[in-house]
Design a protein around this nucleic acid. Structure first.
Lengths: 226, 226
DNA sequence: TGTACATCAGTGAACGCGCGTTCACTGATGTAC
DNA sequence: TGTACATCAGTGAACGCGCGTTCACTGATGTAC
């Protein structure tokens, strides 16, 4: 082979195994045997296991962040100076994710699960890498969220954004398992697109919740918000 | 010492280190050196590392689930045959968690973080253990949620419950870090109670969101819910 | 056109390390007769 | 009351294993002269 496909085979296997089992529970031996390449090839091509993890993220995050920037550009152009609404902002993000070109039918699940793992299993080096490489679209998303919810205080908005990220990352990172359970219990098939279509209204409603509860409604008022 | 405190010292150290670093990233050598006991003592008293993880969860989940059952009993008695509202149900859960007697000032954070890890890092054996031991209060909570949201279809309710669990588990498992960031950026101190007081309205609003979005509002209608 | 050298992808085997677990052992306390 | 034995908490050292990484090496291809 004139142009080696070893690198791609390693990335494919690593992506799938990381998504399935997490980072520290996936060994280089699993990856190289799944990819049918020599154990030493990972260190030869990538340098280290951590660098391989970064490469897996870079392969899908780089095109994704470009797509996302374009979607935000288009959205802001459409809105013609006015701030996009919360729903529009969330949908721009969601559609960018769903519309990414997929390597195979499992592509979108793997993509979602990796994003979820990046949040819940992040080990320092990964968080640092993601911040250094992809902070721009992330900050832009935060700015749009802020402009779409001018009624919220900074503190309220901060916490509600964390709640949104949590609901999204958790659901996405377990989406395969959750779809399986639903299939089993109620016999209903679900696509990732449908999950997204249910998640966005949930998030928008939570984000715009009117009532800040000051006192427990049914037991004695034991804690209050300053 | 007539009555050994080795077991408690191991549990204290394990609880703190697990909460801080996760399960597979915490070695028995870290735990035993933090607890100032012999390495072999873990296997002597607990049998294995997995059994130690179970013991850590059992120590706080057993009293918690008893407290929770009592809170649900009281709530149902108060409601006198009528189904408790969603807000009442969520508050009963939240207050039970917050009111648990704490071993120290970090107790509630550790408790929350372990619950979050149980969801996001669950490794089969732990999920199985928790299901076998604590499915009763969990199922009761699910039943109350169902009765509080009769307007939702089973599928909608299923997904929205997952979104709630995700927002909660994620926020709780990172609550220390998130509080730190907020303190840094806006100079605001936050207690776990205040986080809960913000989370509950967010969840209730999301859970009761009216609109199920059928078509993307701003881009071409590329996906629909059946 | 032929030869010498450089570069590159890939390989097989080993390295050192940290891990959970095991094992033979100690010393204190309790129990039976 | 004294002795023999059993039980129990705890210990120090080692075991085997899987891990990420390294290293000397091979063989194919490209390049210079």
């Amino acid at each position: 082979m004139a142009q080696s496909d070893t690198v791609d085979r390693i990335l494919d296997a690593a992506e799938e195994l990381f998504a399935e089992r997490g980072f520290s529970e996936t060994s280089l031996r699993m990856i190289t045997s799944e990819a049918r390449v020599n154990l030493a090839a990972v260190n030869y091509h990538f340098g280290s296991k951590n660098a391989l993890i970064h490469a897996v993220f870079a392969r899908f995050l780089t095109p994704f962040s470009a797509t996302l920037e374009k979607a935000f550009d288009e959205l802001e152009k459409q809105c013609d100076g006015q701030a996009p609404t919360l729903n529009q902002t969330l949908w721009a993000l969601t559609e960018s994710a769903v519309r990414m070109p997929q390597r195979n039918e499992k592509g979108i699940s793997i993509f979602m699960r990796l994003l979820g793992l990046a949040y819940t299993q992040s080990q320092g080096h990964l968080r640092k890498f993601l911040e250094e490489e992809y902070s721009q679209p992330f900050r832009r998303f935060m700015r749009l969220l802020k402009e779409a919810t001018p009624q919220l205080t900074s503190v309220d908005r901060y916490w509600r954004i964390q709640f949104m990220l949590g609901a999204t990352a958790f659901t996405m990172s377990s989406s395969d398992a959750l779809r399986g359970i639903l299939q089993n219990k109620l016999g209903v098939e679900t696509t990732v697109q449908e999950i997204a279509a249910r998640l966005v209204p949930f998030l928008a409603a939570g984000m715009q919740a009117q009532d800040k509860m000051l006192v427990s409604p049914n037991l004695s008022g034991s804690f209050t918000v300053a």
